[in-house]
Design a protein around this nucleic acid. Structure first.
Lengths: 341, 341
DNA sequence: CTGTTAGCGCATTCAT
DNA sequence: ATGAATGCGCTAACAG
């Protein structure tokens, strides 16, 4: 980094003092319009840009938001990032992105790394590792340091802060209900994110729907995916021993993966088995058959989260009036299910 | 941002001077080990973390790299970002990510925004809009400001700097050749990135392969995708009037999309038509049939690029010994093609 | 071995 | 209307 044109040089060049130049450039009413003009012309001529580092040090803020995401390769998080970036730029903010890779340690390390002057606040989705550890001190510590935290999607009750989520319970409930309404008798739930807040909520919605429809409990099966290859085997065994006609998957990849396994077993989608997944991404749109999905509106979610964060950063006191915002999902019907909207 | 514990406070608390505290914390040999111990203990007690802003201002560097990517929703770029982030963190660097959204204006704006003290250098993949405008002044301007630029994947001859690419020509040549060797007579090329450097190289490889195999020129057809819906129509018309038995696609999405159109027309993949795409992502792995792809090793590419950038930032003179590094691809055979490796 | 001083680039208070 | 002086938090040259 090196931008050699400083206020000082401009001051020398113009024969004004540093403070006059500074004020002129800031359009201060203290300065005469003639001087302003001269100074501004000179600044443009030399292509002056203020050194943000110095400005930030002075003003004790960075106009930068730290974003910590579990896995950027998941389409949902990529979409959220798009929304965050878009909204941030709109307000003149930058984002520093860290990928926790679902690891508690990386999440902690990233926050520590950014918490000493690199960012004004954090937008975070909690990693699986952190859920396993049940340790959220790194988050509360950031808040204590006066760095506001906003949790999105994967949240926790252990931290008091702004939160942005989707209506997981309801979405899951509705999708399950739709499948039952369309004639499914044995709907299973497939989840690679069972230990996250959203995973839990989605299971709850699924269970409630079965309950309300008085479905036989035998079918209330949750298959947890930890390793896709292992799942492949266990699912094949499962399907040989159990009749299923509906699958609700907690994300996009698990839905597609399960669909391919179902098809591989000679079953027809959606004739024999209806499949619905969470997250509407490229995968869902371009699968064969295309996947019925619950669109989480990731971009919007990112925008909402960022707007909220910037709003908070504008306040005097960062610790008042925390809010939890819910973004509603949309069920998109495609070829993988026989449901009616 | 606000980290109230400063060197000054530590100095007061310990009755040493600021500089002594600073040096003690930095393990300077000038300081006695007793003092060091005392100071360090105190620092730990008060959870002192140095203010990076001040440090950076002093040292005139940020330990942050600006990353500008055309579209994070494309799996290839997401992978590269993963590699960049990983390698950056490894060396204690942060990354500020901007998404150009294939727009020249956004690319320029992002660079301007970051070029005044926010980053030490840039890692960039050129947007389609920039290729159309043929204006690379924002890049040369950054270099002139002593902010090194590294171009990856989508590069240009107009800027002298480090570059990291894959062997597009060769990869395309080989893939085409493999299809011909497996019996294909009418291989077409499908591309949504025709005006980028990589798009051009891939077409060149494709042409050269046809030429070397003395294939009839009638089949040397390049179908350009600008809008997927429009392409859907034009491709269907095309396929009704022309016989094809092979498709090489310049990226993952266009490959899958074309495959679905082919299947939609009642043709069988790979029996009637072999399909190969660039970029190995989730889409290719989970399509039906799974897609034969040219793996661009995006993560590795990101790592290599970042390593190179950090290396350059360590040098005295940023403008010497520019290098172009080529990362080799791997052809991954899956169900969508009848080729032999 | 420890402390004083200066300065990174900027905004700002207080003179003039 | 303009300028001198101060300080944000840190490092480092220099003095003691």
């Amino acid at each position: 980094m090196s931008n050699p044109i400083t206020l000082k040089k401009l001051a020398n060049l113009s024969n004004f003092s540093i403070s006059t130049v500074s004020k002129a450039l800031a359009d201060s009413p203290e300065i005469s319009s003639k001087t302003k003009e001269k100074v501004k012309k000179l600044a443009k001529l030399y292509n002056y840009t203020p050194n943000l580092l110095a400005k930030n040090l002075k003003e004790r803020k960075t106009r930068t938001i730290g974003v910590i995401i579990p896995n950027i390769l998941a389409h949902f998080f990529a979409k959220v990032l798009v929304g965050i970036e878009k909204e941030a730029v709109k307000h003149g903010y930058n984002i520093i992105t860290c990928i926790s890779d679902e690891s508690y340690e990386k999440e902690v390390k990233s926050i520590q790394m950014l918490a000493s002057g690199s960012v004004d606040g954090f937008i975070i989705s909690v990693s699986k590792g952190t859920y396993l550890n049940k340790n959220y001190e790194h988050l509360t510590a950031a808040i204590a340091k006066n760095l506001p935290v906003l949790l999105f999607d994967r949240i926790t009750d252990k931290v008091t802060c702004d939160k942005v989520v989707i209506n997981d319970f309801e979405s899951s409930y509705n999708a399950t209900k739709k499948m039952i309404d369309s004639g499914c008798k044995n709907v299973i739930f497939v989840s690679p994110i069972n230990n996250t807040s959203v995973g839990v909520e989605r299971v709850r919605g699924y269970h409630k729907a079965l309950e309300d429809c008085q479905m036989p409990t035998i079918s209330a099966e949750i298959l947890i995916i930890e390793d896709y290859k292992k799942f492949s085997n266990s699912f094949n065994t499962y399907i040989e021993n159990n009749k299923i006609d509906g699958v609700l998957a907690a994300d996009e990849l698990s839905a597609i993966y399960t669909m391919n396994l179902v098809i591989g077993k000679g079953l027809k989608v959606p004739e024999d088995v209806s499949i619905i997944g969470f997250t509407d991404g490229i995968l869902s749109e371009n699968s064969n058959p295309p996947l019925t999905t619950i669109d989480q509106h990731g971009i919007e979610l990112g925008e909402v989260a960022t707007k909220k964060m910037i709003e908070r950063l504008q306040k005097e006191d960062y610790t008042k009036d925390y809010e939890t915002i819910t973004v509603n999902t949309t069920l998109i019907k495609r070829g993988s299910s026989a449901i009616n909207l």
